[in-house]
């Protein structure tokens, strides 16, 4: 399987990843364990072949990750021979940097931002590569490839640097940093077709499996220690897969029988709901994403 447009997107992404390695002193790659960050790691490996990936990967662990994600992450790092740093939201809570939401609907997703910004400061990171895409959400449609953050890690949508041709301006003052999104131009379908074309391995969560599910506000959440039934909610065994992998408290599954990449590509091509549509946290308010981005979330 060979897709011309994917080769073009790949070449563009590799160009951007190399620009980061060349223009910054301490770039890190943010690794969430999801398919987009797996693709980022894959592209980074290709960008520097036959050399090794010249930057460290950083994982912000909410403590609410699916166990499959962590196992997969560690295996991948060993295969790439890459350096990994992990920082825990739990530590931020213990240090009193953040206050944990309580109650059955509590999510640590919002808390990640503080842990992330602390980690970026700790490692003096000047460029953080991320796997966000513009098609995920409207507020991202105007995001730059090289997105400037002020010394508080904040994004100012009105004051973005123009990006022309393939000239990326990464100049910055001490204490400022950049978020860089090399796969901005990819859509969800592109990602899946690329996984298919490149035969990239993914955590089993992405494939159809049977799991205990709680339906909450139309979102199917996996039952676990942190997600348990409230009120008249019930736990049901259902055949599902995940379209994104994040915090267990807010990542929704979809009913699916797609067992292989080919099945998924077909399913995504005919899907009627965006992958973010299955995330509880985006539904909180119309401009939810934009607000979180301004604070330094991705």
């Amino acid at each position: 399987m060979h897709y011309q447009h994917l080769k073009l997107l790949e070449a563009e992404s590799i160009y951007l990843i190399r620009e980061v390695a060349a223009q910054f002193e301490r770039p890190f790659l943010l690794f969430s364990g999801g398919k987009d960050s797996i693709i980022m790691a894959h592209l980074a490996r290709k960008a520097f072949f036959p050399g090794k990936i010249p930057f460290t990967l950083l994982h912000v662990d909410t403590g609410h990750n699916f166990p499959e994600t962590i196992a997969f992450r560690d295996a991948l790092m060993a295969e790439l021979g890459a350096r990994l740093e992990v920082r825990y939201v739990q530590d931020s809570i213990d240090q009193g940097r953040v206050v944990e939401e309580t109650g059955p609907y509590a999510s640590r997703n919002g808390l990640q931002t503080v842990t992330l910004l602390d980690a970026l400061a700790e490692f003096k990171v000047d460029a953080a590569l991320g796997g966000a895409r513009r098609d995920e959400e409207k507020a991202r449609a105007k995001e730059r490839f090289f997105s400037h953050r002020d010394e508080f890690g904040q994004w100012d949508p009105k004051n973005q640097r123009p990006e022309l041709w393939n000239l990326y301006n990464g100049r910055h003052k001490p204490n400022e940093h950049f978020r860089v999104f090399p796969i901005s131009n990819w859509t969800e379908l592109d990602v899946w077709q690329y996984i298919q074309m490149e035969e990239i391995e993914l955590p089993s969560l992405y494939f159809s499996h049977e799991r205990e599910i709680i339906e909450r506000d139309g979102v199917l959440l996996g039952a676990s220690d942190v997600v348990y039934p409230v009120g008249d909610e019930v736990v049901k065994r259902q055949v599902v897969r995940f379209r994104t992998i994040g915090d267990m408290t807010c990542t929704g599954a979809v009913l699916s029988r797609a067992k292989t990449i080919d099945d998924i590509v077909e399913e995504v091509a005919s899907a009627r709901v965006t992958e973010r549509g299955a995330r509880a946290d985006d539904k909180r308010s119309e401009a939810a994403m934009e607000d979180r981005k301004k604070q330094g979330y991705f």
């Binding site: 513009r134 098609d135 409207k138 507020a139 991202r140 449609a141 105007k142 949508p157 009105k158 973005q160 901005s184 131009n185 859509t187 401009a287 934009e290």
Partner: peptide, 20 residues
């Protein structure tokens, strides 16, 4: 296609937005 809040309020597009 109108992404950002400021624009939604003014009802005009003020930046470059990318669509796929």
């Amino acid at each position: 296609t109108d992404g950002l809040r400021a624009e939604r309020e003014q009802k005009i597009t003020i930046d470059v937005a990318y669509r796929y």
